[in-house]
Design a protein around this nucleic acid. Structure first.
Length: 477
RNA sequence: GCUCCCAUCGUCUAGAGGCCUAGGACACCCGCCUCUCACGUGGGUAACAGGGGUUCGAAUCCCCUUGGGAGCGCCA
């Protein structure tokens, strides 16, 4: 185990990179980085019907956004089909595999029989001991063969799993799986084993839906006399209701989280704590998590996806993010929110500077970038401002009269700075015998069109003298 | 159905026989701070699935039950 660690992330490109895949990739990436090893990326595109180039792009794009980098070139499994075939034929030659001419009708009959008997489908090994004469006869009938593994009939197969512990199967429950299809293409089982072996993968981290496969794959390793890599089968992520994660809950593509306004570092932090813990620590910088990540601490029970916690962590990271950097993170999200295009168009250098100036007050009031954009709308609104219902109520009372008095005080101000503005507003409060809040709310309504916003003196300063006085006059009338 | 895996607050989890009258975080409730909303901060509600063992002692070990999950293809 002192050899350099090599992990791999091996998605099949039949859809986007979903959140569970993202976590699997993260764990592989963390383990490799923790030990100064490598994480390889292999696209399992042997299913020619379901694999699409769009999905490949989506996966690669998703990994990049999440900040998970891989080493070396992307490996495409389909391109290695000749090598897979070569291994299958070598296994045939040394008697670890055999030709099976069973037809799909025969297989279907076996399936039916198994179902009727209440047992899982198990190929019965009818071609296991057949000789050349039988093969020739089948060939003469025009039948095609697949190559099956000659799996052990009795005894047990044990997987030493770094997360699941020692898991054992009786070999009688494992049948002779197909290695090479009748069209000469490899099955997933064969391809995975050959690729992981050839790529020098030392640690396989994947979802525990592959646990049963692990047993069958280790038989393939053994049939070839290859060392079985360390394996770690991590529990799947479930939806809030405990059922399998569906699109309805969180099985969104990683890119959807970007559109929803989450920061990649927040998603990483959330994901790493799903099924893994390091004492009571909740917040992990990337360096911190790579320094302490250990498969030993990965739990064995499935975790539910919880948006509330993700939002909380995201809020934390937004507040920690530098204002200018936050603006950059905001930009790509604009395309995904209503009115975002208008904001994007209005982003002159001056507006950007204004937005950055407003950021401190904005970012502590939002849990996602989408919320932050929503809270920023008053910066981009044009006069006369549209008032929302609560703002209207505030102004409907004696708000307008208060604004008029405030207006004259503010107009008289020689400088437009927070301290001076606050002093003026407080002076008005004092002379009219009102609490500060009684003045701040009408001000807020007139300035932002809403009942909530960043601190009112912040808003005053960020908006600037002319714009503020204009908005106040609009409403004071 | 068969095989395998799992089981601590609503959720994510700490806990590797005595440190546990079970800790942290999110969510929720009540305060404080306060120009609103937040942030921050103080406090609170809330869990060892059930039953048997083993042991001086069990959330921690074993068994059973119950409840979840995954897999059972010439898909990956």
């Amino acid at each position: 185990m002192s050899d350099p660690i090599v992990t791999r992330f091996a998605p099949s490109p039949t859809g986007f990179l979903h959140i569970g895949g993202g976590r699997t990739a993260l764990f592989n990436w963390l383990l490799a980085r923790r030990h100064g090893g490598k994480m390889l990326l292999r696209i399992e595109d042997t299913d020619r019907v379901r694999s699409t180039p769009e999905a490949i792009d989506a996966i690669i794009d998703g990994l990049k956004w999440l900040g998970l980098s891989w080493d070396g070139e992307v490996i495409y499994q389909f391109a290695r089909a000749p090598r897979h075939k070569e291994v299958a034929e070598a296994m045939l030659a040394n008697g670890r595999a055999y030709k099976c001419y069973a037809t799909s009708e025969e297989l279907e009959a076996m399936r039916e029989a198994a179902k009727a008997a209440g047992k899982p489908m198990r190929y019965d090994g009818r071609w296991r001991e057949k000789g050349p004469e039988d093969h020739a006869k089948a060939e003469a009938e025009g039948r095609k063969y697949v190559i099956r593994l000659k799996a052990p009939l009795d005894g047990q197969t044990t997987v030493q799993d770094l997360v699941q512990g020692t898991v054992t199967w009786d070999n009688e429950n494992l049948d002779d799986l197909v290695l090479l299809r009748s069209d000469g293409t490899p099955t997933y089982m064969l391809a995975v084993v050959v690729d992981d072996h050839d790529m020098g993968v030392t640690h396989i981290i994947r979802g525990d839906d592959h646990l049963t496969n692990a047993a069958r794959q280790s038989q393939i390793y053994e049939a070839n006399g290859w060392k079985v890599p360390f394996m770690a089968h991590i529990p799947l992520i479930h939806g809030p209701d405990g059922a399998k994660l569906s699109k309805r809950h969180g099985a969104l593509g990683v890119d959807a989280y970007r559109a929803l306004g989450y920061l990649p570092e927040a998603l990483r932090n959330y994901l790493v704590r799903l099924g893994w813990a390091h004492g009571d620590q909740e917040i992990f910088s990337t360096d911190e998590m790579t320094a302490v990540f250990d498969l030993k601490n990965v739990g064995r029970s499935p975790a539910r996806f919880d948006f509330a916690k993700l939002e909380s962590i995201n809020g934390h990271y937004m507040r920690k993010t530098d204002d200018a950097a936050l603006l950059e993170a905001l930009r790509p999200v604009l395309a995904h929110v209503e009115g975002g295009a208008e904001i994007a168009n209005a982003l002159t250098p001056e507006k950007e500077a204004q937005w950055i100036a407003a950021m401190p007050g904005l970012k502590e009031r939002a849990k996602t970038l989408v919320e932050l954009i929503d809270g920023s709308r008053f910066l981009f609104a044009t006069r006369p401002l549209a008032m929302d219902e609560k703002a209207r109520e505030i102004l409907a009372k004696d708000g307008k009269a208060i604004l008029a008095r405030l207006l004259s005080r503010l107009e008289a101000l020689p400088v437009w700075e927070a301290a001076a503005l606050e002093e003026a507003v407080r002076a008005e409060a004092e002379s009219s015998g009102l609490k500060l809040g009684a003045l701040a709310q009408p001000l807020r309504a007139a300035l932002t069109g809403r009942a909530t916003s960043p601190g009112i003196f912040e808003v005053l300063v960020v908006l600037g003298r002319e714009e503020c006085l204009g908005r106040l006059r609009d409403q004071a009338a």
